[in-house]
Design a protein around this nucleic acid. Structure first.
Length: 568
RNA sequence: CGGGGCAUGGCACAGUCCGGUUAGCGCGUCUGGUUUGGGACCAGAAGGCCGCAGGUUCGAAUCCUGCUGCCCCGACCA
């Protein structure tokens, strides 16, 4: 069948539907790739499904290349298997439960099912290692679906699982996936970076996330594009210079600050350097107070604090608690002259600092010329602050960028959590029974598409590349319906290009040139072939490259060869 | 789950505060004609139980109550 635009279902929209907030969602709707069906649930229309199929094919190629074997596991799962690993409880409300068949749940991921099958059939070390993967629909009852296809209740995931006999084997399998993921995302044409991550409810040891920088993202990461350092801002550090000592600093002295409640007030009223204004924040943990001393303009990172306190059971102290423990209200609290004996920790940047200004624990008064070594009782110094954009990279010293990011893929060293729970064992060379050592590796298929769109569009519409585009070439015959020579030339080119292996769509609609140009730019296939009577008179057609906008006039008999050479 | 916003032809919106014949505009769609290299013009047309259910009223898109759905912020997020 000839791919005539009049016969292909591509419901484009001139205006942006009000429900779409982010570029990828707007573009998907406007160019007729998807339609929303319910919150977090989407239908893929023919053009969008072509893109999905291209992504999944690419994923298959890269998974097969590392020895992966494709499965198709059911989305409908017996709850018993999930109970054995304790994840019914761990997943909580995220897992959909079937109401009129209480023994069944909808799978939010597939570690359990893979391990179940492994436990039945993997018997010997000779059966290992294995890499099993699938591309399948997942169901998660997200509390708040958002950002179009980025966070849905139903989505497609390429999930892979490795099974090894040893931890060294797991390292190898993990590295294979790491490399395969880099290759995949490079082929797709995404700018991405990798960050270390916590494994959360998945269990296991090491895990890394593949991230794409985007304002639509839900994670915040610090990235250095020079040396490749990257980390979630929850754990990121920077190479910023400590406050340090100044020479000939006078001794500590109290002074009245009646109108200075905040660091900014102090800086303004007394012409101070905010870096020398030490900020004190008081937290309560396990019913005990702790005073945290930081540079005045720094923000406390609660994830880091959680690591230090070894509990997530903490909160900022309330007003009356501040007065009870320190002797002053917020705005005049400091590490010196505290009413009660409380634990004090400080940020690394303050180590050895002097000349500091901080609250006097007496409303309306501060101390100046504080020497932290002489005047304070700091129990320990830690990295407590949140990294800010522009600070030096802790690795190479170049500028660090703090960016929002979308999580595209996640790789885990699972270990034996699932194989132990589901009794997936094998006999080793010595006849010893051992537990299979597993890894788990996921990529969100729709997210690949959305991330690509977030990175590849302009005011006119989408800019597809060869790897993902639904069609390679868009033929735009102008005034085709009244100029037979245009029509015959356009269809002849269609045949030749198709025969040469390209996916071609021909805009045979009876529309004006402007309409065709604008729709072609919106749909964004890499090349547009404009066939008009003027150029045809010179035996030429116009070739427009969507990404650069460049147009060249090509003799018809050279066209196929030219495209073959260029489009690789 | 907490907070906020929205719901009127396919899309984007006005009308709602202050109730009153046939609910309006732009885009899109259909018909005819004129156009024809960047969303063209003229003429005509189709398409709405104004989210759903109750209530108030002589009369409800408009006021009241309940419900549902969608979007945003937060919480949450293998």
């Amino acid at each position: 069948m000839i791919m005539k635009q009049t016969q292909i279902f591509i419901p484009t929209l001139k205006e942006v539907p009000s429900e779409a907030q982010i570029p990828s969602h707007q573009l998907m709707l406007r160019s007729g790739l998807v339609r929303g069906l319910a919150s977090g649930v989407f239908s893929f229309l023919p053009l969008g499904y072509k893109v999905i199929k291209k992504i999944t094919e690419l994923l298959r190629e890269e998974m097969d290349a590392i020895g992966g074997q494709e499965f198709l596991l059911p989305a409908l799962n017996p709850i018993e298997i999930w109970e054995q690993t304790g994840r019914v409880e761990a997943m909580g409300d995220v897992m959909f439960h079937i109401k009129n068949r209480p023994g069944l749940v909808l799978a939010p991921t597939h570690e359990e099912i893979i391990t179940f099958h492994a436990s039945k059939h993997i018997q010997s070390y000779k059966d290992l290692p294995q890499i099993w993967y699938q591309i399948q629909t997942k169901f998660r009852n997200e509390p708040r679906p958002k950002s179009g296809v980025l966070r849905g209740r139903q989505f497609t995931m390429k999930d892979a699982y490795s099974m090894d006999t040893t931890w060294e084997g797991l390292d190898i399998s993990y590295q294979k996936h790491y490399d395969a993921y880099c290759k995949t995302f490079n082929r797709v044409g995404l700018k991405f970076f990798v960050v270390g991550a916590s494994s959360g409810a998945m269990g296991g040891s090491k895990s890394q996330e593949f991230m794409v920088e985007s304002n639509s993202g839900e994670d915040t990461c610090a990235v250095c594009y020079d040396c490749g350092y990257s980390a979630n801002v929850e754990v990121a550090s920077s190479g910023i210079t400590p406050v340090g000592k100044i020479d000939n600093c006078p001794t500590i002295e109290e002074f009245a600050t009646p109108n200075s409640k905040t660091i900014d007030d102090l800086v303004r009223d007394f012409n101070l350097d905010s870096n020398h204004c030490a900020k004190s924040v008081v937290y309560m943990y396990d019913s005990k107070p702790i005073l945290i001393l930081m540079r005045g303009n720094d923000e406390l990172n609660e994830t880091k604090l959680e690591g230090i306190l070894k509990t997530n059971n903490f909160r900022a102290a309330e007003g009356h608690e501040l007065a009870d423990f320190t002797g002053a209200n917020a705005g005049s609290i400091g590490p010196v002259n505290l009413k009660t004996n409380i634990r004090i920790i400080a940020d690394n940047l303050l180590k050895g600092a002097n000349g500091l200004v901080s609250g006097a624990n007496k409303d309306g008064f501060h101390f100046k010329n504080i020497d932290i070594d002489i005047d304070c009782k700091i129990e320990e110094y830690y990295d407590l602050r949140t990294v800010v954009s522009g600070e030096p990279c802790p690795n190479c010293g170049k500028e660090l960028k703090v960016v929002k990011a979308i999580e595209l893929g996640h790789i885990f060293k699972l270990g034996t959590k699932y194989s132990e729970a589901l009794d997936a064992k094998f006999l080793d060379e010595d006849g010893q029974e051992k537990v299979i050592i597993m890894g788990s590796y996921g990529i969100g298929v729709e997210r690949v598409m959305a991330c690509y769109l977030e990175q590849n569009f302009d005011e006119k519409g989408i800019i597809w590349n060869k790897e993902l585009t639904p069609y390679d070439i868009h033929i735009l015959p102008l005034n085709m319906h009244r100029t037979p020579e245009v029509e015959s030339a356009a269809f002849k080119l269609y045949d030749e290009l198709t025969a040469a292996g390209f996916k071609v769509m021909i805009d045979d609609r009876n529309e004006t040139a402007g309409v065709k140009f604008n729709d072609a730019d919106l749909l964004g296939f890499p090349m547009q072939l404009i066939v008009g009577s003027k150029n045809l008179a010179n035996n030429q057609v116009e070739l427009k490259y969507r990404r650069s906008g460049e147009r060249v006039y090509v003799p018809i008999n050279e066209l196929v060869e030219k495209i073959k050479n260029e489009y690789v």
